[in-house]
Design a binder for these strands. Structure first.
Length: 428
RNA sequence: GGGGGGUUUCCCGAGCGGUCAAAGGGGACAGACUGUAAAUCUGUUGGCAAUGCCUUCACAGGUUCGAAUCCUGUACCCCCCA
């Protein structure tokens, strides 16, 4: 058995535990079952969930059995932890859809085979919906002193806010998550719950409930939240969250996100999110300090995570797109390849015959493609050398585009400046 | 109710009869540099069939050869006195 606790400790992933001295020995003794919960707020997880997912994967690789719990029931309520305002409730249909989407993503990181360490995926809606209100109050609610609950950070923060408050529903969230833990303990002999540090209150509520209901010793462990050095959230860009599904965030965009991680954040990301060995990470730390321009850490981070989430094919698409996006000339491509690489890029449809005769003026093309608001703006971009056709700098304002400028059967790739792209599709 | 000040191009802010598409700054965009970074430097920043033409300085009228600039009215904002 690998000493997973030592590894986690080295990576800085142990924030709080319910039993510091005991946990390491306990984990090394024999395979244990561990769970982490995921909120089905959307049909895809985003980068924020990568950390707990990787945690589960690490546990599985160390020989333990991971359980991914999708909060179909708790998602209907909303976790007050870390939220400043009451959450909107999701519809049952929406939840079902989300749970299905998340299942597929979890499966990429942990194995659901029949071995002793084979993962389980459970949905707490399956057991929570069997409870009647009265039963729940009697069996579970009875064990929760309200005065203790009110002292928990997640609740207290909301109580102290004058502008928002907390509903009885969200107040009760903790009971549901606590009961999840107890249920998983009964059904799967699960004894450890992991999560982000914002889950500490909910996790300890579970360990306490286990003791009160069944005199069971349960364990909890939290990892630090993955935040950036500048204080903002990891996984967010101006254009929105970075998702794990290729439909929402293309493998290329995903790759780029990690490639662009700030130097100060790279070490943490490598430790938290990759499975690189300690030696490899230290080598990268050194490289980052001595030759930052090589960006070895970012490259490695991007490669590993893209491979993990989008597979070999996704990685090669991302690599090829990267090559093209940053200078590589575009020639001898076909529509399908370009479509994949430029999946996130806006495109406009134009009639094929505009390319015949004198061709389409570059000025018009830029305006049609949406790269310039007016011809004047297009003229400016071109005369300053900031306009490219298929990644070749445009010669001048008078240039006209003809069929020879097509990069593939029907597509032409225009670019303004360093990375602003647009496609023109010429259908006959 | 009385008195005074304001409304300028994406934002702030000059301009107070022609030389004003309108200073300066910010932002934005582009180029150089660079690590697909930051900083820095340079250029651009109403539209167009472009040595010119058209639209813009709260809105509507007027004076004038000519108005962002002067006059009248309208709307909104601010300040002072009641």
């Amino acid at each position: 058995m690998n000493d997973i606790f030592a590894d986690l400790k080295w990576r800085g992933l142990v924030y709080q535990t319910t039993a510091d001295d005991h946990l390491q020995k306990w984990l090394n003794e024999k395979p244990r079952t561990v769970y982490a919960g995921f909120d089905p707020t959307a049909e895809s997880l985003h980068v924020g969930s990568l950390l707990p997912l990787m945690q589960l994967r690490r546990f599985q690789k160390a020989g333990h059995r991971p359980i991914a719990l999708v909060g179909g029931a708790t998602g209907m309520i909303g976790d007050p932890s870390g939220k400043s305002a009451e959450r909107n409730l999701l519809s049952v249909d929406q939840l079902e859809q989300n749970v299905a989407g998340i299942k597929a993503q979890v499966a990429k990181l942990v194995d659901f085979d029949e071995t002793p360490a084979g993962a389980q995926l459970v949905n707490n809606f399956d057991w929570m919906n069997k409870f009647t209100y009265l039963e729940f109050l009697r069996d579970v609610g009875k064990h929760f002193p309200v005065n203790v609950m009110m002292a928990k950070d997640s609740i207290r923060n909301r109580l102290e806010r004058e502008d928002s408050g907390i509903s009885y529903t969200e107040f009760s969230y903790m009971l549901l998550q606590a009961y999840d833990f107890v249920h998983l303990n009964q059904a799967y002999d699960c004894e450890l719950q992991i999560g982000g540090s914002d889950q500490w209150g909910n996790i300890t509520a579970g360990t306490e409930l286990g003791r009160r209901m069944h005199q069971k010793q349960l364990f909890g462990m939290t990892c630090p939240l993955l935040t950036k050095a500048d204080g903002t959230k990891m996984g967010k860009t101006e254009s929105g969250a970075i998702w794990l599904s290729a439909e929402r965030t293309s493998p290329y965009a995903f790759y780029q996100y990690w490639f662009n991680v700030a130097d100060e954040d790279a070490g943490k990301c490598l430790r938290f999110l990759t499975e690189l060995s300690h030696e490899e990470i230290e080598t990268l730390d050194k490289s980052r300090a001595e030759e930052p321009h090589q960006r070895a850490s970012q490259k490695s981070l991007a490669e590993h995570l893209t491979q993990l989430i989008h597979g070999d094919e996704g990685l090669s698409t991302a690599r090829r797109a990267t090559e093209i996006f940053f200078g590589g000339t575009i020639e001898d491509m076909n529509d399908a390849q370009l479509g994949q690489i430029f999946a996130d890029v806006p495109s406009s449809e134009l009639a094929r015959d505009r390319l015949t005769g004198d061709g389409l003026s570059l000025l018009d093309a830029f305006v049609e493609a949406g790269l310039a608001k007016s011809k004047g703006e297009a003229r400016r971009a071109i005369s300053q050398g900031g306009a490219y056709v298929n990644n070749v700098r445009a010669e001048g304002v008078d240039q006209a585009l003809t069929e020879r400028d097509l990069a593939s059967e029907t597509v032409m790739v225009l670019r303004s400046g360093k990375k602003k792209y647009a496609l023109l599709r010429f259908q006959s």
